[in-house]
Amino acid sequence: MLGKITERLFFICATISATITVLIFGFMVFLGLPLIKGGQFFHLLTQPWLPDHNLYGIYPMVMGTVFIASLGVVLAFPLSIGCASLISVIDGGIFSRILRRVVQMMTGIPTVIYGFVGLFLLVPFVRELFMGGSGMCVLSASIMLAILVAPTMILFFVDSFESVPKSYMQAVDSLGGSKVQKLIYIVIPGSWSGIMTGLVLSLGRAFGDTLIALMIAGNAVQAPSSLLDSARTLTAHIALVIASDYESLEFKSIFACGIVLYVFTTLLVVLVRSFGYASRRNNE
């Protein structure tokens, strides 16, 4: 009896949260409908942003987001693989336990703190190092984003490293293999799909982060052409434009940004699921 009720309850909860997700998408499409109907939607994706000339394209923001998020993940990836290897394979002692605690703690630091630290420490450093620009640029934002997504990636990698069957490890030990050989020949190939999933999830997190880019990427409305260019992400654009007039086209462009973000995130989730599916099938 109790089991039935609980089951019902969970079913209702699941239905509600799924419905909300769908409704949000519906809401964005509905409000963005004037743009889509007029055939402007695809123009918006390719046009520049020049409100004074009646052009409200979000192309610069799409490029800004793609650049900053992917560079962030690219920077965080080697760092995370290294950290995860150290924690779960190379060092099994006290240091690895401390490192793991530190990484776990880092996942809880609010992004505004990273943004703040980046603004006062990293931005002046980048400005002086490259002798030009304001230091508020793609590079600064990507470095900060890398630090933001690394802990999540590390913990994910550690989990998948540790799900490699113990018997494989013992086999390596009995053959006299070193820890590094164990890592390269057994652990990493064995947790391939976990690594890909972690990567894709981190990309999603980097894509959706608002504050770091808003605070230290400079927010200039141009498609970045170098690492030292100031750029604006889709999320920062939403945060900056949300205050404008409801009726204006400027405000409506927000929905185009929202749709792009939503579709991209959905694609990432589908990708993650397919990795999970592939690895389950391999294991069977």
Partner: peptide, 26 residues
């Protein structure tokens, strides 16, 4: 008049003061 697309955007008077006080060429 026109504002260059290269311009950086900040979100408040306070933020403007702190970026300019941190940027010798701003």
């Amino acid at each position: 008049g026109e504002v260059s697309p290269k311009a950086n955007f900040v979100v408040s008077n306070g933020a403007m003061k702190s970026v300019v006080s941190n940027d010798p060429y701003g």
